[in-house]
Amino acid sequence: MKIPFPAEESDPSLQQAEEALRDVLAHVPALRVEGINDVSAPDKWLPDLTIRVRFNDQPHLLICVLKPSGQPRYARGALLELRRHVARHPPDATPVFIAPYISPAVRQMCSAEHASYLDLQGNTRIAFGGVFIERIVADKPQAEQRELKSLFRPKSAQVLRAMLREPDRAWRVSDLADISGVSLGHVSNVRNGLLDREWARTSNDGLVLRAPAALLDAWRDSYSAPAGELLRFYTPLHGSALEDAARAALRAPDAAGHAAFASFSAAQWLAPYGRTGTHYFFADDDGLRALQAALKLAPVLKGENVNILLPKDPALLADTIEPAPGAICTSPVQTYLDLSIAGERGAEAADHLRQEKLPWSR
């Protein structure tokens, strides 16, 4: 079943755009709105909205294009439209891109194209002649936050992890569905989300990541600890004795379950930065039992030196790497994400791992 990403709260209307523009322009005492024209029916040769204004007795024209989304793919198309519309008018015309929400990256895109912008959240930059209006709103709208979180939920994350393991590969939707174990419809939704944000592009061979570092940044900023049961234990083993026992349990040929070093413990094998007194693992039920026996674990309420997460998402235990025999670790991407939310020391270890093991993300 196809599960679409959440849409915008509602597509913006020309009336909303007009009211928002009027409100912004009203803050300039010497500026007067002389007339507004809108195009009720779509016409590729006409802008959606034009506003004639006068500032200090000088006439000016604001040429506006309104889009239902402010994502980079839509913004780039709008800026091309605006460039064409402005070319058909006198030099006293200013292009204005309008959308429900315009992200900081798209605001920079507008500035680079010498275009003004306005969104219905209150972010605004309108500049012409002696007029300069700028306002930045810190919060993202709920619809934008929900849509971004949808892109990083477990099923979607399976697709992203597959792509980030081979960031230069061109992917067919069917290949991504096979390797990630999710439906074709869900892969298509992820594809559209990546294309809308220009984190990926299409080629003759399939879908290719064009900005994997930006994708990883957004994932990190939205990331929270995986859902699951966190168990705390004490082990009398330390140092190499603990590591050897854990590796023997993880690589046992008759092991029925799955377990892996995680967080700081995985980073020690992938890109050592600094040791901690606590060891971290992901495991399923059988993997937990193997670790309990091998490490002589005793459950405790405090004073633990081993944390084991039983994740609800089994895909986390499939996304692993083995840098040394038996040292089964969460992947560099997963380890990076987990470290990024582990406090100041974790953030430092995450940055080090990113430099060492994720060169495409620098």
Rank of each mutant, 00 (worst) to 15 (best):
P212L: 02
L301Y: 10
G343N: 02
I98Y: 01
N189V: 14
D38G: 11
P42H: 08
L209P: 02
L310I: 14
A294T: 07
P154Y: 01
P212M: 02
H85I: 15
Y234T: 15
D254I: 07
A347Q: 13
L120P: 06
R52T: 14
A347K: 11
E8F: 07
R73A: 13
L82R: 06
A17V: 11
K140G: 00
A249R: 03
P332S: 01
R251G: 03
E166L: 03
G346Q: 04
E322F: 01
V173R: 11
S203C: 07
Q355M: 07
T235D: 02
E81T: 13
T50R: 05
A249L: 08
R135G: 03
A347M: 09
E166F: 01
A298V: 14
Y273D: 07
L151D: 08
P325N: 02
A241Q: 09
Y280D: 11
R210Y: 06
D285A: 12
D92C: 10
S203T: 15
H27D: 15
A157D: 01
I321N: 03
K149M: 10
Y101Q: 04
I102R: 02
G206V: 07
F128Y: 09
D196C: 05
R201W: 04
E198G: 00
A200E: 06
D178S: 11
I3H: 12
R83N: 15
P332Y: 02
L176A: 05
W45P: 05
N204F: 08
L317K: 06
P167D: 02
A225C: 12
R107K: 09
A177W: 03
T202K: 10
G129W: 01
V159Q: 08
L288Q: 02
A267H: 05
V306R: 00
L207P: 04
S222L: 10
P167Y: 00
Y117I: 09
A225Q: 14
V106D: 04
L21T: 12
R32E: 12
A20E: 00
R22E: 13
P325G: 00
S180Q: 02
G193Q: 02
A157H: 02
V159K: 03
H258S: 15
A75V: 13
I126G: 08
M109L: 15
D286F: 11
D217I: 02
R210V: 10
Q355W: 04
R169I: 00
D23I: 12
K2G: 10
L82D: 00
D139N: 12
D221M: 04
L25R: 03
Q15K: 13
S111I: 15
N123E: 06
R161I: 05
G277C: 04
L295V: 09
L250C: 03
V208R: 10
L231T: 12
A256S: 09
S203A: 10
Q292E: 11
I328A: 00
F128M: 11
R32Y: 09
R125A: 11
V39C: 11
W360K: 01
F55W: 12
L353H: 03
V187A: 03
G122D: 12
D92N: 14
A349K: 04
K149W: 10
Y336F: 14
E229V: 13
E81I: 14
L194M: 04
G193N: 02
Q158M: 14
A267P: 05
A87R: 15
H114V: 15
R345M: 06
F132K: 09
A75W: 08
R161F: 05
P42N: 06
R169W: 03
F264D: 06
Q158A: 15
L164W: 03
